[in-house]
Design a protein around this nucleic acid. Sequence first.
DNA 1: TTGAAAGCGTTACCAG
DNA 2: CTGGTAACGCTTTCAA
Lengths: 345, 345
Amino acid sequence: MKKSHASLKDIAIELNVSISTVSRALRNTGEIHPETRKLVLELAEKLHYKPNPLAMGLLKNKTQTIGVIIPEIENYYFSNILRGIDKVADDNGYRIITCYTNDSQIAEVRAVNDLLFSRVDGIIACPANELTDYVHFQNLIDDEFPIVHVDRDCTDLATTKILTNNFTSAYTVVEYLITTGCKRIALITNLEPLSVGRQRYEGYQEALRKHRIPLDLQLIIHENLGIGTSIESAKNLLKLTTPPDAIICNNDSVAMATMKVLKDSGLRIPEDISVVGFSDDPFSSFLEPALTTVSLPAYLIGMKAMEAILQMIDNKISVNKDIRIVMDSAVVIRNSTKKLVSKTV
Amino acid sequence: MKKSHASLKDIAIELNVSISTVSRALRNTGEIHPETRKLVLELAEKLHYKPNPLAMGLLKNKTQTIGVIIPEIENYYFSNILRGIDKVADDNGYRIITCYTNDSQIAEVRAVNDLLFSRVDGIIACPANELTDYVHFQNLIDDEFPIVHVDRDCTDLATTKILTNNFTSAYTVVEYLITTGCKRIALITNLEPLSVGRQRYEGYQEALRKHRIPLDLQLIIHENLGIGTSIESAKNLLKLTTPPDAIICNNDSVAMATMKVLKDSGLRIPEDISVVGFSDDPFSSFLEPALTTVSLPAYLIGMKAMEAILQMIDNKISVNKDIRIVMDSAVVIRNSTKKLVSKTV
DNA sequence: TTGAAAGCGTTACCAG
DNA sequence: CTGGTAACGCTTTCAA
């Protein structure tokens, strides 16, 4: 491979000046003869000189690189968060190194170590669902290392967190379903310690309480959520003595699979049973019936997270205070739920 | 932020030996007193010493980082390729920096420059569909910079390419449709210079030729493929004097949208019209009817690409010869196409 | 068997 | 206004 990047030294030699002079000229710092400066600038331009980031990293202990820890990207929600992060990073001259955990704590701990080893300037992490032990994050906090949490709420940790109002959106959804006449609302969700499903479950319960509907644990399905297992979950729900008249699914893929099961059982959606998802994946409006779902501000979450970490790095906000930024989500009413008008019947 | 990484110097000072000695001990190179070595190793272990990658990068001109250029990740196919790349990278101690192009040539050129600036050891790129000017890649080749192309075939370039047999799979699909009795097979595809859609179009034509079905250009839709525009495309197809009895879509999302249009028009799938997709996204088996599609070896493509670039870096294969690795895809027959048995009627 | 010094590319400081 | 030197963390070469 040919040497393709010009260095200060290259310029210095060609111009017969010292490296320091070239450096000064380029950064327009200190005193320098205008003519010298002009010469340096011209040659630098010609050679497409840009400072070597490795050298700068070594010297400044700053790599202009942010580590991102995320469960997966085969999922519209997460890939969208990542794109939001990347957008802001890109606009600010930062690079991203991404690590995937598949929601495994072990993988997450390893990711943190790998990223530190790579000398990233900060870490944006969506903590693994199954997380119960926070030491790997607490260590970062103790070291005053910039870190932002996304999507999942480690309440114990003093970090900046960009979250979504899962409690509220679930509450809204349940209330909406109740208003349309649903009485037995099932929930297929994730109840892992940190999962958003858990927050949604609480919103769900609160809505039931408010409307004096007793909680029926038979209606709460919390298997681990693969698209395959969710099929079993849906089937089991239908086997109940009094099956549900609505099912809230933790994401749109699960909703899709659930709808399939329901239709295969001869149920009409939404006449016999309503279905709601979370995320508003691109395919959701193409389902039949089009899926009622909660649109999540994934891209925005990513942007906010990156902005927050940049502010910490630039010392505009102090590192790792307990800051909670809660983003709004929107219930997108489509045709998999009954219309509100039916309430007036 | 506290200093958290131990350096050779730290060890040297604590042990009262020189940095060189520590370095030698750690790498077990040159002559060294066993006792000294033992001491160094113990302390290094205790301090979790690992060589600073920035220093190594500067010294060796090798960063253990690979750049990946990919159109997007909001799409199962691409995110899967990326995961395949990441898997092999991870297993071999390499990091990944990902750049997204959204199939824009400008973004791609910029990505190449950014990655070179970051001193990546190689680049894996899925070239932008709209690409017609290859200089940014040709420059890499001229510099003997390791590069692997993925998914899209820049035939003019002497690079390693990991491809899928799009011609063959399209041919197979068309032939299958013909065998099930379809006579007017439409194609909603991308015909951008580098798109796989173009190769599929050729396979499509070849199959028609073989079966002596004249090519009807009215049946070829090649708008740019958003999920929205594909709806228009499908609608227009239905307006034809003799509408198609099968539609092959360039990916599963388009197939999904198309199915929606067809069903809204009162057509039965597959009785009235067959639909085929490409990619076998996770949702495809949950469509109604379940989608017949071509399963693409995305993860494997990613792995192969990373393996190839590692071999180039390790000089196991010479840099940038014109190597074409064509991966097989599989037609997954589900229920959106008529069954073969109907042929025997 | 060990240490010193140069070099990778840069900046910062101090002399001149 | 300019140059030299040290430093960031490491490997390599040469001396001792």
